[in-house]
């Protein structure tokens, strides 16, 4: 019964001839939460792209609820329940805010009304075009858009990057509300180590495309030497 929602077995992947990820294995249970930490360029984004099916998979396999999805094209993975929030947000610029949400929508608990309730600012700006939004609003829209697909797993790629602290707080609160619903798992890639570990229960740290460390998030929070060695200390300076 304890079939994981998503599991990666010895995944080796990259772009064309370039190999970025080496032998990465990990699991995310239903409603689980996993932080993916590591310095710039270690392969965090590549890991998420590999889960979506956008990279060249050279070895290993991925399974979704026990079924192999290694060869499944990205749109079928998304339709199967993986929601993706890209690092660059990638809002569709020539679609309005509401159209950005509608193109992604699939039946489920997250309707347009529910999503607007979570992000009231988006409701105010529903008629604006995608390219007229501030960075914080774009991030809200990217998360809201992924929610509209009613995913069982949400992949978040540095959602707090480059945002003002008040906006970060707002987003953290929204993600907590989203998780409190109890029907969604997340993989959270973050440079804000403290926030990432607070929002998740498990964590992995990547180094040069491989898993260098695994721990429960609350243990890793206290393990300053490891964090210092593998992530570099943002922890000490941020709140």
């Amino acid at each position: 019964m304890a079939e994981p929602l998503l599991s990666l077995r010895k995944v080796t992947a990259g772009y064309g001839e370039a190999v970025v990820l080496h032998d990465v294995s990990l699991e995310v249970p239903e409603n689980g939460s996993l932080a993916v930490l590591g310095r710039n360029g270690v392969g965090k984004t590549t890991l998420l792209l590999t889960i979506m099916g956008f990279t060249h998979l050279r070895g290993g396999s991925l399974a979704w609820r026990g079924r192999d999805i290694s060869r499944l094209p990205p749109h079928r993975r998304a339709a199967g329940g993986i929601g993706w929030v890209a690092q660059e947000r990638e809002i569709f610029p020539s679609l309005s805010v509401e159209e950005n949400l509608i193109v992604a929508s699939r039946p489920g608990a997250w309707t347009l009304a529910m999503t607007y309730k979570l992000f009231p600012r988006l409701a105010e700006r529903r008629r604006n075009m995608g390219h007229q939004l501030s960075g914080g609003e774009q991030q809200m829209l990217a998360i809201a858009r992924a929610l509209m697909t009613n995913p069982a797993l949400m992949l978040l790629d540095e959602p707090f990057e480059g945002l003002a602290p008040v906006i970060v707080e707002e987003l953290v609160a929204a993600i907590k509300t989203m998780l409190a619903g109890g029907s969604i798992a997340i993989v959270l890639v973050e440079q804000h180590t403290d926030i990432a570990l607070e929002l998740t229960s498990e964590a992995v740290v990547l180094e040069r495309g491989a898993v260098a460390h695994r721990a429960a998030s609350k243990d890793l929070q206290k393990d300053l030497p490891t964090l210092d060695r593998l992530v570099g200390l943002r922890v000490a300076t941020s709140t």
């Binding site: 979506m52 956008f54 094209p73 990205p74 749109h75 079928r76 998304a78 339709a79 993706w84 890209a86 990638e90 569709f92 610029p93 020539s94 679609l95 159209e99 950005n100 509608i102 193109v103 992604a104 699939r106 858009r145 992924a146 697909t149």
Partner: peptide, 24 residues
């Protein structure tokens, strides 16, 4: 229409459109 919006989304950013489940 929603179909039209999907076409425009796919033209804007094909990878993101696929990543949201649109059969481009």
């Amino acid at each position: 229409t929603r179909f039209g919006a999907k076409i425009r989304a796919a033209v804007d950013n094909e990878r993101m459109a696929r990543g949201l489940g649109i059969d481009v």
